[in-house]
């Protein structure tokens, strides 16, 4: 079903066509995984988010208001799941720090062996630097650079004004460039 629009696939799924849902999963799972990976900085959490987001889509598909904005809706769901997870990660780290326990089982920011695809050192450095950007710059940049979303679409996903999106992205690029000089 490669030629069908997202909204058509959602409609087919609502009418009982499970293959249409599989087509949506095939179309977006890598993008959602990469967005979550950029937001969270670790692969385990990103895989959990991938699963949670598509489960949420399956359950909420009837509530989706089909106006050609499926991608923005999907990424909004992904963002919410990532923010929830970041919040509980932060809480968990605080509890561990306050309790004086070590962080041996906390998720590390290191890429897993399966992810060691950035053979070029500069690309590896760039990915690491993106992970160090402030959260809001990181999410805006991920949508802009990896999803090639327009400023308007990013504004829809993040629920912020278009000019703020532009500022976040240019600040992120400038921050990365400063480290790249």
């Amino acid at each position: 079903m490669p030629s069908l629009a997202d909204d058509d696939l959602v409609q087919m799924y609502r009418e009982g066509d499970v293959d249409a849902f599989d087509a949506l999963f095939d179309r977006y799972h890598v993008a959602i995984y990469n967005f979550a990976r950029t937001m969270l900085g670790h692969s385990d959490g990103a895989e959990d988010v991938l699963q949670e987001v598509f489960l949420a889509v399956a359950r909420a598909a009837r509530a989706y208001d089909a106006r050609g904005r499926f991608r923005a809706w999907l990424f909004r769901l992904a963002r919410n799941h990532c923010l929830n997870r970041l919040q509980s990660d932060r809480l968990r780290r605080r509890v561990i720090a306050e309790s004086g326990l070590d962080l041996a089982d906390a998720p590390s920011g290191e890429p897993s062996p399966a992810e060691q695809v950035d053979r070029d050192e500069r690309l590896a450095l760039l990915r690491q630097l993106i992970g160090e950007l402030p959260e809001r710059q990181r999410e805006a940049l991920a949508l802009y650079a990896f999803e090639e979303m327009s400023y308007q679409e990013i504004a829809d996903v993040l629920g912020i004004p278009l000019n703020t999106v532009r500022t976040l992205i240019h600040r992120a690029r400038a921050a990365l460039a400063q480290r790249f000089e």
Binding site: V30, A31, N34, R37, S43, D118, L123, L141, A145, R173
Partner: peptide, 14 residues
């Protein structure tokens, strides 16, 4: 940076 962003490979879930 822009070139790097464009070339950064997509990661795949395990």
């Amino acid at each position: 940076v822009d070139t790097g962003l464009a070339r950064l490979p997509r990661l795949l879930p395990s």
